[in-house]
Computed example of a mutant assay.
Amino acid sequence: MNAITTSTLDVRAQIIDAFNFRHATKVFDADRKVDDETFATILEAGRLSPTSFGHEPFRILLVQSPEKRELLRAFSWGANGMMSGTSGQLGTASHFGIILASTAATMTAGSEYLVDHYRHVKHLPEDIIDVFNGAYGKFQRIDHDITTDREITDWSGKQAYIVLANMITAGALLGVDSCPIEGFDMAQTTDTLGAHFGVDTSQWKPAVMFAFGYRAKEPEFPKSRRTMEDVVAWF
């Protein structure tokens, strides 16, 4: 058995420290911005994240323009500060964005989009593409029974959450605060993305919003979680 090195112990401690540091930041210090290199690392953690079948059914939309952010304010109650009496994450975050999830238009087995993805992103030979199409088709129709547009979009949204989780963890390791945000009206957000952000909403739907920056103040309450015994079962 290999001895546990000091560096391994250090990494373990850094990981746990990062998770204890992280909290859902509701208000950021509007005067502090995450530098370009640091945020590029956070984005790279998202880009390199695993997704089911390697399909990458997501896009990351950054909304940095104050005018564009304001277009989301009326129906983004989880980000507009209504519960804190502030301008919220929309008004204070260094970086604000939305992760989009692919719809059935692109993520249905055998779609032109997926075949192109296999050829030009995954660089698969044609016979392996046939294998992928068959395996993914069985996964959709039989194993998980996800065939409607809503079901496929929700499946894509699951992959988006993996992406955001890795971005949040990378941020915490770098000392950057964050907040995942589900508090928004789905229909109005979708309409706004189509009308003002050039998003083809037949192919992409909003999955989750996010904000990154530096906290304006420390959390009011200590982190609380269920015990390990409540969370994990071994067999």
Rank of each mutant, 00 (worst) to 15 (best):
G78D: 01
H95R: 09
T92C: 04
M83Q: 09
E56V: 08
V115Y: 03
N80R: 07
T106V: 07
L90Y: 02
S65A: 07
T106S: 09
T103N: 08
G85S: 09
W77Q: 04
L100E: 00
Y118R: 11
L61V: 12
Q89D: 03
I99F: 07
T106Y: 06
L61I: 14
F96K: 03
G81P: 13
E56K: 09
E56A: 14
E70V: 10
N80P: 10
L90R: 07
P66D: 02
V115R: 13
V63L: 09
E112M: 02
W77N: 11
S87T: 14
R73V: 11
E70K: 15
D116Q: 13
G97A: 06
Y118E: 12
L71W: 08
T86G: 09
T86W: 06
G91S: 09
S87L: 11
Y113W: 15
G97S: 05
S76D: 01
A109Y: 12
K68Q: 14
K68V: 09
G81H: 04
S94L: 07
S76I: 09
S84V: 05
S87V: 13
Y118M: 15
G88L: 00
L90D: 08
T106M: 09
T103W: 01
Q89F: 02
H95L: 01
S87R: 13
I99M: 05
T108L: 03
S94W: 03
S102P: 00
F75M: 06
M82D: 08
S111F: 09
S87C: 07
L72F: 15
